[in-house]
Amino acid sequence: MKYMLLIYETEAHYAGETGRALLADVIAGHMRFTEELQAAGLDWSGSELAPTEAASTLTQDGVVHDGPFAETHEQLGGFYLVDVADHAAAVEWARKIPLSPGGKIEIRPAGDNCG
């Protein structure tokens, strides 16, 4: 079963010298996490996303706006798509994803198990 593990964090946590150090730690954690996914033999993909300042949103009426769809305290910063046995396994993998303070992981079925 495929699950999206959507990573939400506050971009401001990565600002300044302290933020750059935090980012380096989080990236190192992601490298370890992806090594663990590979070692487990899981079918997976993932990517970081550019900051929200690079985002644009296309509305139903065809208008393109600068920025992400919603104004929130956390921003979608990246994702993993994992193919695991069930929701419980997706939760266990999500628990291993490194986050900045206050970060969250949204776990959402994908592909054939959406409905």
Rank of each mutant, 00 (worst) to 15 (best):
Y3S: 00
L5D: 01
T10Q: 14
T10M: 06
A12L: 05
H13P: 00
A15H: 12
A15S: 11
A15D: 14
G16I: 08
G16Q: 08
E17P: 09
T18G: 12
T18H: 06
R20T: 11
R20F: 05
R20E: 15
A21I: 09
A21F: 01
L22N: 09
D25F: 00
V26T: 15
I27C: 04
I27Y: 10
I27K: 09
G29C: 00
H30V: 00
T34Y: 02
E35R: 07
Q38V: 05
Q38C: 05
A39L: 06
L42K: 09
S45H: 06
S47E: 13
S47Y: 07
E48R: 12
L49V: 02
T52Q: 14
E53G: 01
E53C: 07
S56C: 09
S56M: 13
T57L: 09
Q60M: 10
Q60L: 12
V63E: 11
G67D: 11
G67K: 10
P68M: 13
P68Y: 09
F69V: 11
A70C: 07
E71Q: 13
E71C: 08
T72N: 04
T72M: 13
T72G: 03
T72Q: 13
H73M: 10
H73S: 13
Q75F: 06
L76C: 01
L76V: 03
G77R: 15
G78N: 06
F79R: 05
D83W: 05
A85K: 14
D86M: 06
D86G: 08
H87D: 04
H87S: 03
A90L: 00
V91I: 15
E92W: 01
W93H: 03
R95Y: 05
R95G: 08
L99W: 05
G102Y: 02
G103Q: 05
I107H: 06
R108Q: 08
P109N: 04
A110W: 14
D112F: 05
N113R: 07
G115H: 08
